[in-house]
Design a protein around this nucleic acid. Structure first.
Lengths: 194, 194
DNA sequence: CGGCATCATGTACGTTTCGACATGTAAGAA
DNA sequence: TTCTTACATGTCGAAACGTACATGATGCCG
């Protein structure tokens, strides 16, 4: 039920239409919780039926902006404070790494280089956003402060994965993928995290 | 279709039953790609029908162990090398952080402390596993090497999130947030001296 | 030998999520 | 005026996923 509460949270900040919310998920939020527009419109209908949001304003092309009701705001807060946190992670790139032994050394190195570049790029993008926020480009409201914290998480996770990909490439190059499991010299698995 | 390929990858390593695979996901793999047993058994049936795996051995209580066929192995490798990497992330704890401004300072600090402890604990668990692997407790096969890389990712991500939670707690304590969303139209308390 | 934990596989149902398809409006450019 | 782009909302169906329910076999401990 995370999407439901995410929508309530956004609407608690300011009124918005399904379109607005879709954009919001596409841009900043897609990084941590993707949502497509059919899902959003569907959930808005349900929230409206449950009385957690209400129609605030009708615009030009059938645009319908919603805002949270008192019940709605109570519900988000309940979720934030009482609700169980879902720590589930589903990261395909890491799942793949379990099967790296099925790839040739060349393929693996190429793959890891691409992965590192990808994560580095994403991290850089969020880093820029963070800098803009820190300069005050988006004001200093509490909402902006929270968003800044979320952006920091995105930076750190993507940077961690970029570093990991580089570490893995190094690791794989040191341990030449030879089929037979003859004991290799022990100097290889140096640890190094924070 | 990640589960499908994950199963193929495991079976490429050694024959296993639905039960074995379920355990494997529960223990090491659940951290990066959860899978419940109904899903696994269903997928195994489909893989068998598609000729990507075959029955290798029938055991005691209806136990059925499978192994990959030549087609199956070709398919995993195709996936690993040609298939697009899915970088989707869906992290509820970070989604929540966008709405931290709806929580009272006390609630937020309590929440972040719990989060930090959680991630620190998970990271510690995987760190132990990594150390055991580095000591050679699981041999030095290529499969183990790949698993070691996956474990490293788990360590780094969880550590990154633990550090992030602590950073966020510090950040939030410096920028004291007022409990309820009462005041709205104002220039907001400016950024603090640090 | 009786009870219990573990092994082992499945069905049924409901929810979440995505991709494809469908439709129409308004604004601005050419 | 026409064309294009952005705005705006929806339906439909399939796939993926999780929870609860259901069943039975085997090994071991006391």
């Amino acid at each position: 039920m995370s999407l439901r509460h995410a929508l309530l949270g956004f609407l608690a900040e300011q009124p918005a239409s399904g379109w607005d919310l879709t954009r919001r998920f596409e841009t900043t939020l897609g990084a941590v919780w993707p949502a497509s527009h059919p899902q959003i419109y569907g959930e808005l209908r349900r929230l409206l039926a449950d009385g957690l949001i209400e129609i605030r304003e009708q615009g030009p092309r059938g645009r319908t902006a919603y805002s949270v009701t008192a019940d709605g705001e109570r519900e988000v807060k309940r979720w934030l404070t009482t609700g169980d946190v879902d720590h589930t992670m589903r990261l395909e790139p890491i799942l793949r790494s379990v099967f790296f032994w099925l790839m040739s050394p060349d393929e693996l190195q190429a793959h890891l280089a691409k992965e590192a570049a990808h994560y580095e790029g994403v991290a850089a993008t969020y880093r820029q956003l963070a800098e803009a926020k820190d300069r005050g480009d988006y004001g200093h409201s509490r909402q902006t402060g929270s968003l800044r914290i979320a952006v920091e998480a995105a930076i750190r996770i993507n940077q961690a994965l970029a570093d990991w990909a580089l570490w893995a490439a190094h690791q794989a190059s040191e341990q030449p993928a030879q089929a037979t499991a003859t004991a290799k010299a022990e100097g290889d698995g140096r640890r190094q995290s924070r």
